[in-house]
Design a protein around this nucleic acid. Structure first.
Lengths: 193, 193
DNA sequence: CGCGGGTTTGATGATGCTCAAGCCCGGTGG
DNA sequence: CCACCGGGCTTGAGCATCATCAAACCCGCG
């Protein structure tokens, strides 16, 4: 259950057996069904969620009622509304499961206690926030400079594991286009193969 | 020269006269001409820049040669390629001045020394990074859900001071449209007034 | 005065949306 | 076992938005 987390942390910082065991004690493992909400608009995001297996998504609903997927999360990823979590403000996002999933949850208080007791994890979380920030700036660049087809190709490259797991209309929403447009783009691409 | 910085910091944390004076010693004030580069693609962003007066911009040039403005900075703002700065990696961005400007520069080493000697500033910079992150997520949402006209109106609301200072084609680039399109949008809006 | 930039205007075309219908396929009930 | 239903994907036609190319305009400045 915690193997993946260990590998995940060790990719960024080194950690001893003892420290890791201590670290684990702050996480709450949970199994989730399909279509289960972890966060809804208006709530305050109180925890970071590490994904062991399955697939989750984070999305907003705009004033016209359209759904916009901000990010997906599969195994070895974190998911949370970082803005709500960091600034302790009501979220504008939803987070739910696309499939049966296994996750490790880390409550705000647990995380703070954990960082006090294992200070090297401060560094780990700083790196995590940087990665989030980098990913979001990259998305801005993409949406300014690439066509829908280019964005789809770049999505395939960046998240190959997602393509098989996520319904097509959710990918369309992530790319900022309609399911119909994505269908046509895929048709064009398969012509060229 | 440092008055604005003081107000800027005090909006986020409280700071004594003595601490602030100490803090100032880490900054290097500089006057910049129009069209001067602070950062070019391939360099590593080594400093954070606080703007006292004037106007700067951060932009990329994509593989098609198109310019995309990521952000503007006028007085009371910071500008830097945070990704390059944080991960100490070559920047993909440019930063230059749109006008004669007065800035305060804070080198990486100075900042680190400053945070060691005045630890409460750690908190200040954490808040700064959060704000940056929030702004970038907001831009993703906008680019997914709003039309060019809506994005322009929202730009006017968020950055009223910029509209008079920045050439129109730079605003267009920020919004992700051509100068011609922006011109037409403005025409439509003035019809409705 | 004439040059050069930024902006505006016009015509045309590409991209992606909307609305609507059809298709495919897995699940359910008769 | 088959008919039917429903959700997701595909396809088509028409339309809105915005880009591109080109020309005109405006205005400050040498």
């Amino acid at each position: 259950m915690f193997d993946l987390l260990r590998k995940h942390i060790e990719k960024r910082i080194s950690i001893s057996n003892k420290e890791f065991k201590h670290c684990c004690s702050f996480f709450v493992p949970r199994k989730l069904r399909k279509n289960q909400f972890l966060l809804q608009q208006g709530e305050i995001c109180k925890r970071l969620t590490f994904v062991n297996s399955g697939c989750l998504r984070e999305y907003t609903v705009d004033h016209k009622g359209n759904v916009h997927i901000i990010q997906f999360a599969i195994n070895d990823w974190w998911i949370a509304d970082m803005i709500s979590y960091l600034s302790i403000s009501p979220s504008t996002q939803y987070i739910d499961t696309l499939q049966t999933s296994e996750v490790l949850m880390l409550e705000r208080e647990s995380r703070e206690k954990m960082m006090q007791e294992i200070p090297k994890l401060e560094r780990f979380f700083r790196i995590l926030l940087e990665k989030k920030y980098i990913a979001s700036v990259k998305r801005i660049n993409d949406s300014l400079s690439a066509t829908a087809e280019e964005r789809y190709l770049s999505f395939l490259q960046t998240y190959p594991a997602l393509v098989e797991q996520v319904p097509q209309h959710d990918i369309a929403s992530y790319l900022g286009i309609t399911p119909q447009s994505l269908s046509r783009i895929r048709k064009e691409l398969s012509k060229k193969h």
